[in-house]
Design a protein around this nucleic acid. Structure first.
Length: 462
RNA sequence: GGCUGGGUAGCAAAGCGGUUAUGCAGGGGCCUGCAAAGCCUUAUAGACCGGUUCGACUCCGGUCCCAGCCUCCA
């Protein structure tokens, strides 16, 4: 039984899929005119973890995440760069997928692009016009009439009259109501355009998600997610469009992620205080980033800092260290899983609104037991290690060979390190501890940590 | 101003009306030539003020503070 906090009801609710054992989930993806930043990383990683958990609990899951490849910012950036829009968007789509691989994500089932979905949008706009909920302004643009949709504001808890009071004066007051929003924009010279019954133009931002989500998942589907900043107006407008056009309930469960903060302030494009994923990857591996993202609950703010990344790195190192040098084995894993309640508690944590911090805490419990068992009962330690790898896998971590993970990115070759270790070993045999400690210090200087044990000396990256 | 969230130990971050969160850092110990890693052990919480209760960090009310949305943003 999976419970999810629904923004619509502001409560945790049991997920009851509309179509038996099948779950449809749509996530608002990227507008591809720049590299993804850490806020995007959170959406990418969290919904990957969410979809993995759903797949383990339901027979089938259709995870749709769109790509916005036409909008004002893209046009603006293409002009600035003096490049084709499609060249620009293709470049950043490739970059996004590279980032995603680094973060250890699985691919969504479908990644529809706005520019491939124009027909569905036109169909929906036409339907809205036919129903009298949309109209054409004097400039030719098609607008959605918020006053003609009864439930406007139900997701964000906003009230039309209060919004009205705070509304800014619209320069193009071609709208009947300042809160009306564009469904279709008439093309300006040198802008990309598609033909429509109302004239050549391009879609407004909100209509694409209504069209693509319902096209792939049906007029009423299970889960729709995105960052909290999309709650209003984007998701509110999606509801207005979809429910207005289809005359049925749109989304059952709305999920919104908290922000990634920098110095207690939202990381965002407009504040220009963001770090791109690839910048962070220069100093930390993708798995550390992934761990960092899941170390707080998805609805809480996630504070980005060197300290928290270091924390994530250390924590992950502890997990990998526990399974290092152990013969992880499936053989006894099931018995071990039965004997201890790690797996059931782990699943229960994720069932409860995808509580990744609790799930991670259970990983550490397993790791500790691996560490205590490895000298007592090797088989049991191996089975526990296998369990740890399995549970980590559910979150998309602990997939690497421990040795490789712990040694990755060292500045000198493995051979050189092994040579130094050999020299140090010889010095130790001769009890020349000055020399042996000197060698260890030298390696420490370049970030190589040595660890002696009864079976020999191993090394890892600091 | 309206609407949302939130304030937990040195830091990060969860659950929970009465019983160990977890990771890092700190103290003591074991192990080690010494370390590191690991293990054992230990200290440090719940913004403030009231209320409900046998009992509240957890429920209710108020105060203060912080963030977010109300304009493009994941």
């Amino acid at each position: 039984m999976i419970k999810i906090f629904n923004t619509l009801s502001k409560k945790k609710e049991v997920l009851k899929p509309i179509h038996g054992d099948h779950v449809g989930i749509y996530v608002c993806g990227m507008t591809v005119y720049d590299y993804c930043h850490m806020g995007h990383a959170r959406v990418l990683v969290m919904f990957d973890i969410i979809s993995r958990h759903l797949r383990r609990n339901f027979k089938s899951v259709n995870y749709v995440r769109n790509i916005t490849d036409i909008d004002d910012k893209i046009i603006k950036r293409a002009v600035e760069n003096n490049e084709d829009i499609s060249t620009l968007t293709e470049r950043f789509i490739v970059a996004m997928h590279e980032d995603e691989v680094a973060l250890g994500n699985l691919e969504p089932d479908i990644e529809p692009r706005a520019t491939d979905s124009i027909d569905q949008m036109l169909y929906m706009i036409k339907s809205l016009i036919d129903k009298g909920i949309a109209y054409q302004g004097h400039n030719g643009d098609i607008y959605y009439s918020v006053r003609n949709f009864d439930n406007y504001g139900k997701l964000s808890g906003k009230n039309l009259d209060e919004l009205e009071a705070g509304a800014r004066v619209d320069v193009e007051s071609d709208k009947k109501d300042p809160l009306d929003f564009v469904l279709w924009k008439m093309a300006k010279p040198n802008e990309p355009k598609w033909s429509s019954p109302w004239g050549d133009g391009r879609p407004g931002w909100h209509i694409e998600c209504s069209a693509m989500s319902t096209h792939h998942l049906g007029n009423n589907f299970d889960i729709h997610g995105g960052g909290s900043d999309l709650t209003f107006p984007h998701h509110e407008n999606e509801i207005a469009q979809s429910e207005g056009a289809n005359e049925c309930s749109f989304v059952n469960t709305w999920m919104h992620l908290g922000f990634v903060n920098l110095d207690n302030e939202k990381m965002s494009k407009s504040l220009n205080n963001f770090f791109t994923i690839r910048t962070v990857l220069e100093n930390y591996d993708g798995e550390t980033l992934r761990y960092f993202i899941m170390s707080s609950h998805y609805r809480s703010p996630l504070n980005f800092s060197d300290e928290s990344l270091e924390n994530a790195k250390t924590a992950l190192t502890r997990l990998y260290t526990s399974i290092r040098g152990i013969n992880a084995s499936d053989a006894a894993m099931d018995q071990v899983s039965m004997r201890f309640d790690f797996e059931s508690r782990f699943n229960a944590a994720l069932d409860d609104d995808f509580n990744t911090p609790i799930a991670l805490s259970i990983l550490f419990e397993v790791a500790k037991l691996v560490n205590t068992e490895r000298k007592k009962d090797e088989d049991q330690a191996g089975a526990l290690a296998q369990l740890l790898i399995k549970l980590g896998g559910y979150l998309g971590i602990l997939k690497s060979i421990p040795e490789e993970y712990l040694q990755q990115g060292s500045r000198i070759s493995d051979e050189e390190i092994e040579e130094k270790i050999k020299q140090r070993e010889e010095a130790r045999i001769k009890k020349d501890f000055n020399l042996s400690d000197q060698i260890r210090d030298e390696l420490a200087q370049i970030g190589i940590v040595l660890e002696d044990s009864s079976t020999g000396t191993s090394w890892r990256k600091a």
